[in-house]
Write a protein that binds this DNA or RNA. Structure first.
Length: 366
DNA sequence: GAAGCGTGGGT
DNA sequence: TACCCAAGCTT
């Protein structure tokens, strides 16, 4: 049992393992590596500036962390710059209409993040500043275990054990934890806690993430240049890629639906705001049928108006939990057509849309 | 605890 | 092509 090993202090097979050797040595090795190898990221206060006393702006840290949830650094970089330029402070964002924030978020996915981003900004502006403890941060919308710990550590220099997907992988390998995910989470958190330093908690978190992203990668980790390979149980066994252990994935089902692109005489197209809850919640989209399993829905019953609809093609899109094929129909608005109150005429090239809707609109333009 | 919730890039 | 995955949160 791994827990018994901790309690008894029994030596593992690897004499330099993080378990038997001083955990402090692992932390120091990683922090030293971070001092010379930290990625230069727009939302980050690097180790050098930190040592000169520069503090990270909690708003900047929070904004970047929300954007980075399940989203790559490369995707976030340019979008983060736009957000920060448009809303330089949390008060600025709190004062903006929700639809502006959703529009700026369009294309980034997981749109609950954008709704919660705005809700959180309003809450923080109301209370005056970001809370500086994990527990208080966790009460805010969109902030869970990971983000609360990350903001507490990075923005407020609190000792907080930050565990994201990168750190999960690093720790699982470091201690060769073979419990399948997500069951291994408590053990991983405990092991991370055991090596977590009291000082430079935020730098350590970012060092672990940089290591996971660039060295301790999911596939073909670069163990030969890893600063903590001497302490790594998985490396000692030669099966780094086996960790963490993941259960087999379920196949994604297929769904079909149709959307209807109605044009007026001014180069505008009819869009409607989607319901707050659920898929693409709160975002603009084309009117359409429900997306259901099985064969395509040939019915035009749900078209926004009786018109001369022409099918222009289909778009294929993959969501987290299903494949979608969307038939796309176009028509010109008949004389006397009146849109409903939840609909709006927008020039399609100016509409801020989720990607699947952007795809649908784009095939009506050719 | 499992399911719902996006998208783009890499292999 | 199809699959994998990326600084997760909410219900």
């Amino acid at each position: 049992m791994a827990s018994e090993t901790i309690v008894s202090g029994k030596k593992s097979a690897n004499p330099d393992s993080a378990e038997s050797a001083a955990p402090k040595r692992v932390a120091k090795a990683l922090l030293d590596w971070y001092d010379s190898h930290a990625r230069d990221l727009p939302w980050r206060v690097g180790p050098k500036a930190r040592k000169l006393g520069k503090r990270a702006d909690p708003y900047v840290v929070w904004l970047s962390e929300i954007m980075l949830q399940q989203t790559t650094v490369a995707t976030v970089k340019p979008r983060f710059a736009r957000f920060l330029k448009r809303w330089p402070t949390v008060e600025d964002m709190a004062g903006a209409p929700l639809d502006d924030v959703l529009g700026e978020w369009a294309g980034l996915g997981y749109y609950a993040r954008a709704r919660n981003l705005h809700k959180c900004a309003v809450a923080v502006a109301k209370r005056g500043s970001f809370p500086d403890t994990e527990d208080e941060l966790k009460t805010l919308p969109g902030i869970g275990d990971y983000t609360a710990a990350a903001v507490a550590a990075i923005a407020f220099d609190r000792r907080a054990v930050v565990v994201d997907g990168n750190i999960e992988r690093v720790v699982a390998r470091l201690f060769a934890i073979d419990t399948p995910m997500p069951g291994a989470k408590p053990e991983i958190k405990a092991r991370a806690n055991a090596i977590w330093p009291d000082l430079r908690s935020g730098d350590f978190a970012q060092a672990m993430m940089d290591l996971g992203a660039g060295v301790c990668r999911p596939k073909t980790p670069l163990c030969l240049i890893c600063p903590i390979s001497a302490a790594c149980d998985a490396y000692a066994r030669g099966d780094q890629e086996a960790f963490p252990v993941r259960p087999a994935k379920k196949p994604k089902p297929y769904r079909k639906g149709a959307v209807f692109a109605l044009s007026n005489g001014r180069g505008e197209m009819l869009f409607e705001r989607r319901p707050e809850k659920g898929l693409l919640g709160g975002m603009l989209g084309l009117p359409g049928t429900a997306w259901t399993a099985g064969e395509k829905d040939e019915s035009f019953a749900l078209a926004p108006v009786k018109a001369e609809w022409a099918r222009v093609g289909e778009v294929v899109h993959v969501f987290t939990h299903f494949h979608l094929t969307l038939d796309v129909y176009v028509a010109s608005a008949p004389k006397g057509f009146r849109k409903s109150s939840d609909q709006q005429w927008i020039k399609p090239e100016k509409a801020l849309l989720p990607t699947v809707m952007k795809k649908a609109v784009s095939i009506t333009q050719a």
